[in-house]
Amino acid sequence: MTGRSDDDVTSRRDRTRPTIVTCPDGPILVRGDVQIVDDMGSIVPRRRTTVALCRCGASTIKPYCDGTHKAIGFSAP
């Protein structure tokens, strides 16, 4: 058994750091401790640990994705 090294602490911090993933021709997946706010600065309720943000502009539940990008044949720039 060894004590906790600096590497362990660093990797633990990396694991809790927010991540943003752009899905090919799909939404933006957001994981981690991120507050989502609208353009007035009001907090958008976040109901799950991982959320998908609309990237095609056609979602009916913006800022979240509802899968509509598939119906409109969205192609990410």
Partner: peptide
């Protein structure tokens, strides 16, 4: 499910 499964389908 509209919101959740748009996340789940990607994962």
């Amino acid at each position: 499910h509209v919101e959740a499964d748009a996340v789940h389908e990607q994962i």
